[in-house]
Each structure stands twice: as C-alpha cells, then as structure tokens.
Computed example of a mutant assay.
Amino acid sequence: MTQTADLPEQLAEIVEEFAAVPDQQKLELLLELSRELPELPAKYQENYTDSMEQVVECQSPLFLAMEYDDAAGTAELIFSAPAEAPTTRGFASILQQGLSGLSYQEILNTPDDLHQRLGLGKAITPLRLRGMSAMLGRVKRNIREHLAK
C-alpha cells in the first residue's frame, strides 16, 4: 500500500490515484494530468521567460513562479511547460494541484520521495523522475528563501 499519511490531503489523493491503477496505466494518468495544468495567468503570459524562473534540471523547458500570501502563510504555484512535453506538464500539474494554496510548512514538509510514491519508475526514465524531484526541490528552496527575507 502506498504511504500517504504524511502527505497533504490533495496530494495524497493524487498518489492514491496512481496506486490504484496498474503500471501500464500510470503513464496514461500522468498524460491526463498534463492536460489539467492551468493556463498561465495573464500577467505571466507575455515574457514568461523573464517573469518566471526556469527549472533547468528538467529535460524540457519548465518555468515556475510562486505567489506568496504572507498574511495566510500560503503559496500558489504557477508552472509553464510546453504541450509537447507531457510528462513534464504532468509532473507540474501534480505539484500545482497537490501543493498550491497550502501553507509554507505543509509544502516544506512534503516528502522528497514524492516522485517515487507515484510508482512511475517502470513507465518513465530515471532522468525524468529526477526532473520531478528537482521541481519539488525548487519549490521548497523558493519558500525557504522567501521566509528568510
């Protein structure tokens, strides 16, 4: 059984979805999630490469922006990934759906082995899995830097 007790509720639900399907269907689920990645908000659409940070560890061009609500202590995650990079978009969608709007601490407490808990090891190359790990690492680093200011 997949361990989800230490995950935020919305992220645990995604991990449980992956655990519920056979290995050969995990990639299909990831592709489905890639289509759910929200469009960029208007303020990022023009020159997003200048207003967003590139996650260079990803094989495909992936850009990240974070919006902080210090009064509530929450962060919104905004990703841009090309349609022709569906696995990258899928990973971004998982993080966006699973973490966006949560408290800084909930995001920082997200286990670093999230990419392994999705059970995608047989469907996706290790390099792509490291890309997802890098995305989560970048999100956490940005929160730590924001809190240090």
Results as ranks from 00 to 15, higher is better:
T4W: 06
D6Q: 14
D6R: 14
L7H: 10
L11W: 06
A12L: 10
A19H: 10
A19F: 06
V21C: 10
V21R: 15
P22F: 10
P22Y: 12
L31E: 10
E32W: 01
L33P: 03
L33H: 05
S34E: 09
R35L: 13
R35Q: 13
E39F: 08
Y44K: 11
Q45P: 00
N47D: 08
N47M: 08
N47S: 10
S51G: 00
E53R: 13
Q54A: 11
Q54P: 07
V56T: 14
E57F: 00
E57D: 14
L64Q: 04
M66G: 01
Y68K: 11
A72E: 14
A75M: 08
E76Y: 05
I78K: 11
S80P: 01
P82C: 07
E84M: 13
P86T: 13
T88F: 05
G90H: 05
Q96V: 00
G101E: 08
Y104Q: 05
Q105V: 06
E106A: 15
E106M: 09
P111T: 11
D112E: 11
D112Y: 01
D113K: 13
D113R: 13
R117W: 02
L118Q: 03
L120D: 00
K122H: 05
K122Y: 00
K122S: 09
I124P: 01
L127D: 09
R128Y: 03
R128T: 00
R130A: 12
G131D: 09
M132V: 02
M132G: 13
A134F: 02
M135V: 02
L147F: 03
